[in-house]
């Protein structure tokens, strides 16, 4: 059922209904802005992009650094389902799956991204069913702004440890993460039943 709500519209008074004085008042606003912009051009909020650019703080615009999110207990959210490695057009993600003790059963024993091959398309983030891999703002070594970058393999080859995000969070997305949460909850309660 759609609820119907009646709204009363205020009736216009006689001054407004004459119409012409209101037009003149509107023109007045426009003229005020015209003259203030003419006399003080530096106050104009519009910028003429792309000739003019405003820099955002840090690398706020960039999404080039891969991260793997962690669960509350510090284990990676990634369950090595290989969907990112499957969709990756540059074939730069190398995962080896292993078996864990907790409910999730599966974890990435090895998770390497070859950043020298990565095309920063972000498809891995789109494909991830567990919301585990993200791309954040940190500059990757050897990027355009990193003048002192060494182009060595170590800098561009992100291993599991480097990909792990520092922040830990309760994850709600994805079935395997639900299992992980149940596992953590039961561990907190002290009655582990697997």
């Amino acid at each position: 059922m759609i609820k119907v709500k009646n709204i009363k519209i205020r009736e216009l008074n006689i001054w407004e209904r004459i119409y012409i004085p209101e037009i003149i008042r509107g023109l007045g606003v426009t003229l005020r802005h015209l003259f203030s912009n003419l006399l003080n051009p530096s106050s104009i909020p519009t910028i003429s992009y792309p000739e003019e650019k405003v820099l955002l703080p840090g690398h706020a615009k960039e999404r080039s650094r891969h991260r793997i999110k962690l669960r509350k207990d510090g284990t990676p959210k990634c369950v090595a389902c290989m969907l990112c490695a499957t969709i990756c057009p540059a074939k730069c993600i190398h995962i080896e799956a292993g078996e864990t003790e907790n409910f999730v059963e599966k974890y990435p024993k090895k998770f390497d991204i070859d950043l020298s091959r990565c095309v920063m398309c972000g498809l891995c983030v789109e494909a991830c069913p567990e919301d585990a891999i993200i791309m954040d703002t940190e500059e990757i070594p050897g990027g355009a702004k990193d003048r002192n970058a060494s182009y060595g393999k170590d800098g561009l080859y992100a291993t599991k440890e480097q990909l792990f995000e520092k922040k830990r969070e309760i994850s709600t997305f994805g079935a395997a993460n639900r299992l992980a949460n149940e596992f953590l909850l039961s561990k907190e309660r002290g009655n582990r039943n697997d």
Partner: peptide, 11 residues
């Protein structure tokens, strides 16, 4: 069904 396809070998 648990829909745990990411950790299922049958997927």
């Amino acid at each position: 069904h648990p829909i745990d396809c990411p950790i299922c070998d049958q997927a």
